[in-house]
Amino acid sequence: MDDTARDPVPQAVTAGEYVALLRDVRRCSGLTYREISRRASAAGHWLPPSTLATMLGRTTLPRERTVVALLAAFDTSAAEVERWVQLRRDLEARAGERDRQPSHPAGTAVELSTVGDPAPSAPSRRGVLGPSRRWLRLAVLAVLGVLTVGASGALRPGHTDAADGSPTDGCPAVLQQGMYGPCVLDLQERLVAGGLNVPVDGWFGTDTAGRVMAFQALDGLPVSGTVDGRVLDKLSDGTRVPAAWPEERIGTYLREVFPEDPVGAVQVARCLSGLDPYRVEVVADGARRWGLFQFDDTELSRLGVDRPTALDPGWNIRAARDVWSRTGGFDHWQCDSGR
């Protein structure tokens, strides 16, 4: 077998594909960002978790020294590191050649993506593609992110390299609802790894915002629904929320607590939260509602409990029972249709 066939480094034709390959290397390692940082430091390289998160969350070529530091953390051989570095240099050279090409005259069609990139498509809300197709999705996100950068700022530069203070192209300092792109995709993957299921589609919608608020509440962070470096660092630490009750256990407990109307209890809880104990929603007036029976902030304050307590399914069901006992039914909750 020749050297090319033995080459363990997959090929890429765009910067986005190159970063996607690095993301796959990190994912296959099973290591958190902080663990990678410590291993890189032990190998004589400087790679803080925030820099690593920025590098893997963007679609532009990372710095050569950062790539080397990441690979060193995995005890990559010198020959393999050289192949990764050479691939990066080749991509950088191609990008330089494209930049030097004359601009297209008016009226000439211009390709939005480089060779090998897929055409842009609308955001998908159906979850994760297979590992072999991840480069394709990230390339799509890169194109869409460029097209929507003016509106959302999802791909604008926002981080600073703490080592030398120089700016790096990458994710914004704060991720928030309405953004779309690889930076949000990375956030969603971290939320899932932390025990909060959410569609991994690169879109920061209401589902992602709710999961962010649940994570912030359970970890004792300010509940803003936006994501800054502090939240990312917590997620990078491998922090996991307590395991959520499965739907079967929730149904069983509801029937035990509401023996007079077990079917009604399950139906109301399903309508309000989809039987999701970590569901958090923001309603039109800005109030937030928590857990299975969606108690809002005002109710929690009156009951003297905090938000993590509200996300505990046992407490939430028992509190709903108290309301049911006082009011004589489920009229306290308004829900037009099941989820």
Results as ranks from 00 to 15, higher is better:
R279T: 06
A310D: 06
G251E: 15
T239M: 07
R249Q: 15
G328M: 09
V263T: 14
R326T: 10
G251R: 13
R279Y: 07
G229E: 14
R240V: 15
H332K: 04
L300H: 02
C271D: 07
R321C: 05
E299G: 01
R318N: 15
R321Q: 04
F293V: 00
K234A: 13
D228W: 05
S301I: 04
G238Y: 10
W290D: 00
F330G: 07
K234P: 00
D276P: 01
W315L: 10
D237T: 13
P313N: 11
R270T: 10
I250E: 05
G314W: 13
F258D: 03
D228M: 02
G286L: 03
V257N: 08
T252A: 15
R307A: 01
D306M: 02
F293S: 00
F330A: 12
W333Y: 13
A284R: 15
G329R: 06
A310P: 06
P242L: 13
W245I: 02
A320D: 03
A269H: 03
V280G: 06
D237Y: 13
D285P: 04
D261C: 12
L254C: 13
R302Q: 14
P242Y: 11
L292T: 00
I250W: 07
L311K: 02
L254A: 04
D237I: 02
D312Y: 07
A287S: 08
V263D: 14
D233G: 08
R321A: 14
P277A: 06
D296N: 10
D296R: 01
G304E: 02
P277W: 07
E281N: 13
D322C: 02
E281Y: 08
H332M: 05
Q267Y: 15
G329Y: 08
V323D: 03
